[in-house]
Every structure is written in structure tokens, then in C-alpha cells.
Design a protein around this nucleic acid. Structure first.
Length: 805
DNA sequence: TTATGCACTTGC
DNA sequence: CAAGTGCATAAG
């Protein structure tokens, strides 16, 4: 029997990024398994931390005294063998800690919370008892240790044995329970009981009849009382008489329980869709793994291909995973999947409460859900026997996690497909260059849906040169042609969608006398005006301050709001078209849970004529009465210092264009821009992805960017700008001889937003085609920068970063 | 991440 | 000389 557990402790540092051996107490030796969480003592004090059992052993090569496991948290492993293997791989490939990776794969509530408590001992004096504990059996350490004096006093008391420091490892996971009724009597006994009730006691009779139908099953009290028209008081009487028992049963928090989802049937496929489904389905039971790129314009019926392929996987007794960029933005997708697969579907996305996520996760883990739809982190869903992984809108940048572990869900999906020997379908109308290039090389198999299912032509796209508009008209967010078109839709009772490209653009305060711009005291960025709260906010650190009335620099009153926020656009539009009913959708109006869906439903039911919003409206919205789409500022992202700026602009414009003319009515798109001749805008105008791909590939080839090169970004930040810069130059010297001569190292450069949250950021970008030493070198780097980390210098490694700013 | 030991300064 | 502060260190 295994006596020793190799435990990965919850301490995210380089030195603890390896398992520690612990003694398993004899009583638990038969139940502890790899993948379970345990509580173990760690360090010199009495500190206790959570850990994951990675492995069981008979012996250990550690020759000190082993400590013993304190508690076993789980009855069954929460990380299955696949997850354990994935932890290792993920940690290595993203240069992050194993513990962080393990935690990333699980619902957030399974992360331990630590509390430090003070408890009295047998030697606690009466004075201490009165002043500190005041009759409580324990006191939170942080409450008692508010001042430095209090801390030293506590240390003294601890040394004197007057107080005991106790570490509590709290499991945040809570199961929701419901009161249910259950009878232990037989049907005959229930019938006999009917004779004992006094005449006219209808409710009690109904109760007994109801209980007889349960056949010993439990039923929620609420449901019982509704079904048999029995009051809760009667149920209580029944319990008193011993007819029934009240029990607590676990219920899942089902985020979609109340919404009525209509079951849907598979649709007739067109020939192209049929080819795609056939190819994918035939790959499901192949021993090899195939990655498909399913390329199809908006409305070409990609979703139906996904659904029918997933159905085939289920039919073979396998499970299916479907990733979507952010479901809270595309509720229609969840409806379609739930409509097709009903109760077999579990949903995982950021819009769920932590309890809901936990419950959905357990439904998957217990095998109660065979289909998972979810955003980025759903790629770790504990599905066994995976038959198919679908990644919709594979080009979306939300698939990349911005903080450690900086993984891309596509990489994880591909890893899992190799583990399960199942196909992956990457779907998009505008695939990322990396993916499209791989399909070109034959690494991925390309499936094309060229026709729109409804046979509608794509909307006509007009480009409006704002430089000319500006010369002819006063400063306005709306060009003459766009205004005319908007008025026209109002007259015809059709709807319009206006998109404001928020990136790199927002409303700030500028003094017209001295040019002063109000900036965040912590970050190198101007503050944004928020009319709803009447404050100036920093979008990077959250700093907030009142709107200035006079210029803080020259005390002039000529301090005005500049630039374009959605609020400002809405205001201007209300002036220009006073009769239009307008809905605005941005971070402010959609912050509350469900607000997003509510606004969309409102717009969908025809309660408004115009929907104004940021990028979030470009995705997934599908309203038949929308015939006009306007992009107010197409090019604000083009000026950003990022080689993917053109790709993003093209994607966004193509995507938002797809929102016009979804049904019988044809749509028209107006793109306002200061760069009317830019290729990203021209190719988007003609819905020409292939043209864009070829052109952009040349640009990337010339610049030496992905997909011709792999990239790794190393960031250093420090409170002192000079320190950050100096360390980065040292790093460059250190790095150069360790990497291949063909590898290009860019920088160090200050990041385009050089200061965030009082820290200064510098970056180095490594570009390489083949670099066998990379992993070893970067791991060494992480080890060697440990000491500097503690001195305040923070180093971050991002493999294949998506944002270079 | 965090408690501890040790080196060193500070205060009486 | 005791107490206090700061930092390096190691965690089974």
C-alpha cells in the first residue's frame, strides 16, 4: 500500500514548482488517490496549505523527516489522469507554475481560501482572554494585528504560549440543497393511514395519495406541494405523523433552468455542408487526429455543421466540446446547442456565478453532461472519451489568456485531441493567419462553405472618407451619407446598428488653452470621461476622480471633453435624430448580470431603432430587421503599434458587416474612415478574405512576423523605470549568446503604454523559426530572476502573444 | 507565499 | 546588552 504522496503545494514560486513527499496516515492509505486535493503542513511554522496529490509512492528519495497529510479534501479525484498530464504540459509550454495550471483547470471555488486565526490556549491569561478573545473561541489574525505594535505583542504572546496561531484552509465550494420529501411507508401502510385521518381532512388525504405515487423516490417539497395541492403546513403535519421524512437533496444551480429553450431538429444540409460533416464524422473514429479549418462567411451555416458532427460523436457514445469566444455575448449559440442536445449540455462561461460554474463542472465530471459549450477555460472541461472538439470563431483573441498561465485555448484543444485521438474543427469566416497558413501547408484540412444558406448576397459596403467629410462639415461623428441612410431606415421602420471602435480611442478631457490632458496618476494614459457616474476613470487601473471644472494646469475654464465615447455618440445622435429610439450597449450599460441579453432582447423585439455599441455588438447578433450597419471609426486600431492591427481591423469590419441584411431584406454597410485606401478596409469592403490573406501574408513575410516566425514576449516591470530598463538590457546580453544566430531579438523597448499601476514596462520580443534551446533558456531565466522578483522586478513570459502593447 | 533565523542597527 | 528591523532562505 502506498504510504507516500507526492504533493504539489499551493505556493506559486519557482522553488516550489515540484512535488513534495508527504506521509499518508494509515487510515487514509486506501482512499488517497492521485488528483485529489489534500491539506498539508508546509514551511517552518504551522502554516497549512492546499495541495494536489500528483502521485503515490512506496518510497521517497527525500531523506528528511516527512510530514503527514493533514486532511483529504476530496472523496474522488478532481484532476483525472488526463488533467494531471495536461498540468505538466501546460506549465512547461507556458512557462508558468504547475499549481497555477492545476487551479486554472478547475472551477474557481475549488481554490482554497486561507484564514489565519488566533485561538486561546490553556495558558491564556484572564487579561488576554478579555482584551483579545472577548469570549470568542477564535479571532481572525488580521483583525487583531492591525498595527505593528499589535503584531509584536501577538508574537510575544505566541512565544509565551498564551495564544495559538491556527491556519484554516477553507473550501469555498458550497453545494446547494433543497428540502425534499420522501416516505418510508409502503403503499399498503399509506392506504391504511388514510383511515386514521378525521373526515373532511382533504389536504391530508391528498398528501397520502401523493406520497403513494412517489414509490419511495424523493421529490422537492415545493414541487410536491404544487403537484398535489398540499400546503407546506400539511406536509409538516405528515412529517409529525411519521408518514414522510424531510430530507436535504443536492440540486444543481442551473443557469438556464427558467429560460424556455425550444427543441430543434437537424436542418437539411446543402452539398458543401454535407461534405464538411461527412469529412469530420469520418475522422471521429479514426485512430489519427485531424484538425479541420471550417471556413465560411457569415450565414454559411457553420453552426449546423458543428451540431450534426457533434451529434455523430454522441451517437458513437463519445462526448463533444464546443468552444465559443464569449457566450454571454452570443446567447443564441447556447440556445441552439441546448435546443439540439437538451439536458446533455453543460455551459461554462464567465457570466455564470461561481456556484453555477461549480455545479456545471460537476455535472460534466460525473458524466451527466456529454456536451459542453463554453468560453476559453471550458477547454479544460473534464469530459472523458472526447469524440470532437469544435472551436468557433477560432481567430478571436479572447481564446488567449492574458495572465498566467498564458495559454491559447486552441493549443490546449489540439493537445487534448491528440490525447483522445479525436478531430478538432476550427471554424471562422476570417481565420487567423496562423491557422489559414497551416491549412495552406496541409497541416490542417480545409473545408470551405462558400454559399450563404439563405442564398442572400453579402451586404453592399460603402466607404466614407472622413477627411473629406471633415472639410465639408463641422466636426461630427456622423458623415452626411450615413445620416441620410439612418433617416431612411427610420422612415422605413427598419433597424440600424452603429459600431464605435473603442480601441485606442475614448473620450478624454483636454484644455483648449494650454493643451493639458487629464492623466491617471498611476498609469501612462489619459482618463476617460464617464457621464453616468460623473467621474473620470482610468481603464487600466480603475483609478477614479471627479471631473475637473477648471484646468488643473493653467486654471482656465476652457477645459472640454474630447474624442468619442459611446455616450457622446449617443448624445450627438439624439440631437441629430430626435425621433429615433436608441439603445446604447457598452461596458457601462452591460455591467450588470443579464443586462446584455436584456438590451439585445429589447432591440430584437423592435423597441428601438438604433443600437449603438462597441466591439461587443459585432459578434453573433442576428436580427432580421437590421438593414443598416455603420462603423463610425474603422481605423482607430490601425494606428496601434501592433503587427496584427490590419488583421484585427479586417476581422472586425467583416464581422460587423455580417450583421446587416440577415433575412429577406438586403443590407447596407457604411464604413467611416480616415484611411479609405488602406488594404484592410478595401478587402473588407469586398468581403475578400482570400485577397486579404494573400496580401497580409506578404506583409508578414517582409516584416518577419508570424506565421513566418514564432514569437515570445518577455516583459519586465518595476516601480523604478531605470531598473526595468537596465535589467532588460542585461537580459538582452544574457540571452543573445544562448539563442541561435538566426533568431531575432527585438528591443528592449518601453511598452507603448509604458506605465500601468505605477509600474514601468519594458519588453523584449524574440522571433525565431527554430530554437531548440528556447525552453531551457527561458526556464533558466525564470530561475535566475527569482531573486530580482523579490526586489520588485517582475518578469513575464508570453509565448505567442496576441497583443504587443 | 510566508515564517524563521541571522546579521545588523538602535536605544537605554 | 536587549530589543527591533531587514533580508535571505527554504519549505517534505
Amino acid at each position: 500500500m502506498a504510504q507516500i504522496a507526492q504533493v504539489l503545494v499551493d505556493v506559486p514560486t519557482m522553488q516550489t514548482n515540484r512535488p513534495y513527499s508527504y506521509q499518508i496516515p494509515a487510515a487514509w492509505q486506501s482512499q488517497v488517490q492521485p488528483g485529489m486535493r489534500v491539506v498539508v503542513p508546509f514551511g517552518r511554522g504551522k502554516r497549512r496549505v492546499q495541495g494536489f496529490v500528483l502521485k503515490l509512492d512506496e518510497t521517497t528519495n527525500y531523506d528528511g523527516d516527512l510530514k503527514a497529510i493533514d486532511a483529504v479534501v476530496d472523496l474522488a479525484p478532481v484532476l483525472n489522469p488526463e488533467a494531471l498530464e495536461m498540468t505538466e504540459w501546460l506549465a512547461e509550454s507556458t512557462f508558468s507554475f504547475r499549481i497555477t495550471c492545476a487551479q486554472t483547470m478547475l472551477p474557481a471555488v475549488m481554490r482554497a481560501k486561507y484564514e489565519k486565526q488566533l485561538r486561546p490556549t490553556s495558558q491564556t491569561s484572564a487579561t488576554v482572554e478579555q482584551t483579545l478573545f472577548k469570549g470568542h473561541s477564535e479571532v481572525p489574525f488580521d483583525d487583531a494585528a492591525q498595527t505593528p505594535q499589535a503584531v509584536s505583542e501577538l508574537l510575544r504572546l505566541q512565544a509565551a504560549g498564551q495564544v495559538d496561531v491556527y491556519y484554516q484552509v477553507k473550501n469555498q465550494a458550497r453545494r446547494k440543497t433543497q428540502v425534499a420529501v420522501k416516505t418510508t411507508l409502503t403503499t399498503a401502510e399509506l392506504v391504511a393511514a388514510e383511515k386514521t385521518v378525521r373526515t373532511g381532512a382533504h389536504q391530508q388525504l391528498a398528501l397520502l395519495k401523493g406520497l403513494a405515487t412517489l414509490n419511495g423516490e424523493t421529490l422537492a417539497q415545493k414541487a410536491f406541494s404544487e403537484r398535489f395541492k398540499v400546503s407546506e403546513a400539511t406536509i409538516r403535519t405528515g412529517a409529525k405523523k411519521g408518514w414522510l421524512k424531510k430530507v436535504a437533496v443536492e440540486v444543481y444551480r442551473d443557469p438556464y433552468a427558467t429560460s424556455d429553450i425550444q427543441p430543434t431538429q437537424p436542418l437539411q444540409l446543402n452539398p458543401e455542408q454535407q461534405v464538411a460533416v461527412d469529412q469530420i464524422v469520418s475522422a471521429i473514429d479514426q485512430p489519427a487526429t485531424t484538425t479541420f479549418l471550417l471556413e465560411g462567411v457569415t450565414g454559411s451555416g457553420k453552426t449546423e455543421v458543428y451540431l450534426q458532427s457533434m451529434a455523430a460523436a454522441l451517437a458513437q457514445g463519445k462526448t463533444a466540446l464546443m468552444l465559443v469566444p464569449e457566450i454571454s455575448l452570443t446567447p443564441q449559440m447556447v440556445r441552439r446547442v441546448k435546443g439540439r442536445f437538451g439536458k446533455a449540455v453543460a455551459v461554462l462561461h464567465s457570466g455564470l456565478s461561481s456556484g453555477e460554474k461549480y455545479d456545471e463542472w460537476r455535472r460534466i465530471q460525473r458524466g451527466e453532461a456529454q456536451v459542453v459549450v463554453g468560453a476559453r477555460s471550458a477547454v479544460f472541461a473534464p469530459l472523458t472519451n472526447l469524440g470532437l472538439i469544435v472551436m468557433d470563431e477560432e481567430h478571436e483573441s479572447t481564446y488567449k489568456q492574458d495572465d498566467a498561465p498564458r495559454y491559447h485555448a486552441r493549443q490546449v484543444a489540439l493537445w487534448r485531441s491528440r490525447y483522445h485521438n479525436c478531430p478538432v474543427v476550427l471554424g471562422s469566416a476570417t481565420p487567423s493567419l496562423e491557422t489559414r497558413a497551416r491549412a495552406e501547408k496541409g497541416v490542417y484540412q480545409r473545408l470551405v462553405l462558400a454559399d450563404r444558406v439563405n442564398q442572400r448576397p453579402l451586404p453592399q459596403v460603402s466607404i466614407i472618407d472622413m477627411k473629406k467629410e471633415m472639410q465639408q462639415h463641422a466636426e461630427s461623428n456622423f458623415s452626411a451619407p450615413l445620416l441620410v441612410a439612418l433617416q431612411d431606415r427610420l422612415d422605413r421602420h427598419e433597424q440600424s446598428v452603429l459600431m464605435l471602435n473603442r480601441r485606442g480611442y475614448s473620450s478624454f478631457v483636454l484644455c483648449r488653452d494650454c493643451g493639458f490632458v487629464l492623466k491617471c496618476p498611476n498609469c501612462d494614459i489619459s482618463l476617460t470621461l464617464h457621464m453616468d457616474t460623473h467621474t473620470m476613470k482610468c481603464h487600466y487601473c480603475g483609478h477614479e476622480e471627479p471631473i475637473p471644472r477648471v484646468c488643473p494646469n493653467c486654471h482656465s475654464r476652457q477645459i472640454r471633453y474630447y474624442g468619442t465615447g459611446t455616450e457622446k455618440v449617443e448624445e450627438e445622435l439624439r440631437d441629430l435624430l430626435p425621433d429615433a429610439r436608441i439603445i446604447r450597449m457598452d461596458n457601462d450599460t452591460t455591467r450588470k448580470k443579464g443586462a446584455h441579453a436584456k438590451l439585445l432582447a429589447q432591440f430584437g423585439s423592435g423597441d428601438a431603432d438604433i443600437l449603438i455599441g462597441t466591439q461587443m455588438i459585432a459578434k453573433g447578433l442576428d436580427f432580421p430587421n437590421v438593414t443598416l450597419v455603420g462603423v463610425l471609426n474603422a481605423d482607430t486600431a490601425l494606428g496601434l503599434p501592433d503587427f496584427r492591427a490590419s488583421e484585427r481591423t479586417f476581422e472586425l469590419l467583416t464581422q460587423v458587416s455580417g450583421r446587416a441584411g440577415r433575412a429577406e431584406k438586403s443590407g447596407h454597410v457604411y464604413i467611416q474612415t480616415f484611411n479609405p485606401d488602406h488594404y484592410a478596409i478595401r478587402f473588407a469592403q469586398h468581403h475578400d478574405y482570400e485577397g486579404f490573406f494573400k496580401y497580409e501574408m506578404q506583409v508578414r513575410h517582409q516584416g518577419g512576423y508570424p506565421p513566418y516566425y514564432f514569437t515570445v514576449q518577455i516583459t519586465a516591470s518595476d516601480l523604478d523605470e531605470a531598473v526595468a530598463a537596465k535589467r532588460m538590457y542585461q537580459l538582452l546580453q544574457w540571452l543573445r549568446p544562448r539563442l541561435a544566430p538566426s533568431t531575432i531579438i527585438l528591443g528592449p523597448t518601453p511598452k507603448p503604454i509604458a506605465r500601468v499601476n505605477r509600474r514601468y514596462y519594458y519588453q523584449i520580443v524574440i522571433k525565431y523559426k527554430q530554437e531548440p534551446n528556447l525552453e531551457k533558456t527561458l526556464t533558466t531565466l525564470l530561475h535566475e530572476t527569482q531573486v530580482q522578483q523579490r526586489q520588485g522586478l517582475q518578469i513575464g513570459i508570453d509565448v505567442e502573444p496576441l497583443h504587443f502593447m
